[in-house]
Computed example of a mutant assay.
Amino acid sequence: MARTARIAQLRESIARRALAATGAPADARIIDVQRAGTVFVVATEDPASRWARYAVETFRIPTADDTDRDYEPGEAPKIWCALAGWVGDGMAEVPGMFAKAVAYARTA
């Protein structure tokens, strides 16, 4: 069980870094995180959002090619790349949006 908890904490930590790259508020609640190949799928709730309370976003996991040219090879910070996202107003929409995001991630 401890291993499962560590993995969940790691996924949430990674999701927070990806969300921060898109300017998502730090207090957005992470509902679910799943990895699909080289893509992270993150579902969030942000009650303060003026556009939509719930969001599901996909992020390509940074690779060695996602570096800043101003740094020496291997020293550049990794860059999270947002691929696609879905938004909705109700929690009931989240499972459908999440399923669409995972299906998208498997083809990305």
Rank of each mutant, 00 (worst) to 15 (best):
E75M: 12
V87E: 01
A26W: 04
A55C: 03
D32R: 01
L19Y: 05
P77V: 01
R60N: 06
V87D: 00
G88Q: 02
A43M: 01
V102A: 02
V39L: 10
A101D: 03
G85P: 02
T107L: 09
V39E: 09
D65S: 10
E45V: 06
M1F: 10
Q34E: 13
R17S: 15
P25T: 14
K78C: 05
Y54W: 06
K78A: 09
T107P: 02
W51I: 14
D70F: 11
A5Q: 13
A2T: 12
I31A: 00
I31V: 07
Y71P: 01
G90M: 02
D46E: 10
C81I: 15
R60L: 13
D68L: 12
T38K: 11
A21Q: 10
T67P: 00
A20S: 14
T67D: 05
A8E: 14
D27N: 12
R106G: 11
A36H: 09
E45D: 12
A43Y: 00
R11Q: 06
P73C: 04
A20P: 04
D66E: 10
G74H: 10
R60G: 06
A55T: 07
R50I: 14
A2P: 03
D32Y: 00
D32H: 01
E57V: 03
R69I: 08
A5R: 13
S13V: 07
E57K: 09
E57N: 03
Q9P: 03
V42W: 00
Y54N: 02
R6E: 14
R69P: 04
A55F: 00
R6S: 13
A105S: 14
R29K: 14
A5E: 13
A82Q: 11
D70M: 10
P77Q: 04
A82R: 08
R6M: 12
A52L: 03
M1E: 12
S13A: 15
A26Y: 04
R60I: 06
A76Q: 01
T58W: 02
K100D: 15
D68E: 09
A18S: 04
R29N: 07
D70R: 12
Y71D: 07
D46H: 05
T58K: 03
E75Y: 09
E12R: 09
G88T: 02
I79L: 10
T22H: 01
I61P: 02
A2Y: 15
D32E: 11
K78S: 11
T107K: 15
D68W: 08
T44C: 03
S49F: 05
W86V: 02
A105W: 07
A55S: 10
T38M: 10
G90S: 06
R50M: 11
T107Y: 07
A103N: 13
R60S: 11
F40W: 13
W80Y: 14
I31E: 01
A15Q: 02
R17I: 07
G23Q: 05
R50F: 13
R16P: 05
A64S: 11
T38R: 13
A28Q: 08
A15D: 01
R35V: 12
S49A: 15
R60P: 03
K100H: 13
A82P: 11
A18Y: 01
A103F: 05
L19V: 05
D27T: 09
